[in-house]
């Protein structure tokens, strides 16, 4: 557990990166984890097919919020047509914690990923 709540996770929970809205974003989606109430709203600014800026607002547990901070940073500079290729493992890799035995916490960690998936679908 101490591994689950590493200092950088707590730090990101208290002081999230990329927290806030983007006005008139090119891409946008919101998702709710219905089992626990965690929420993520993702905003993406696209310029010439590339992500110029990614931000989020949300509430929930440390894992879901830290994951959203790390993932929005990760998205910056990615090409839009590359988004499809991002996998769950890429997201879990950012968190550097093993959640394979915690299916419920896995959902928390992947909420931002699922939000991105929804965002891509909405865009299409």
């Amino acid at each position: 557990m101490e591994e689950l709540y590493q200092e950088f996770i707590i730090e990101l929970y208290k002081n999230p990166l990329n927290f806030g809205k983007i006005e008139r974003p090119e891409m946008h989606a919101q998702l709710h984890n219905t089992t626990c109430g965690d929420q993520i709203e993702l905003f993406v600014r696209v310029n010439e097919g590339k992500i110029e800026q990614a931000k989020f607002i949300g509430k929930g547990c440390a894992i879901s919020q830290a994951s959203a901070s790390l993932f929005t940073s990760y998205l910056k500079g990615k090409k839009i047509n590359e988004l499809e290729k991002i996998t769950k493992d890429d997201v879990l890799g950012l968190l550097k914690i093993d959640l394979s035995k915690n299916p419920s916490r896995m959902k928390c960690a992947l909420l931002v990923f699922d939000t991105m998936k929804k965002m891509i679908k909405t865009k299409e």
């Binding site: 101490e2 208290k14 626990c36 929930g60 916490r105």
Partner: peptide, 23 residues
């Protein structure tokens, strides 16, 4: 204050304490 119920439940679980968190 400052600790989400899921995080609290996970930390308690580590100490063998089973509680429920959520809605």
């Amino acid at each position: 204050e400052g600790v989400h119920p899921h995080d609290l439940a996970a930390i308690l679980d580590e100490q063998g304490i089973a509680v429920r968190s959520g809605h």
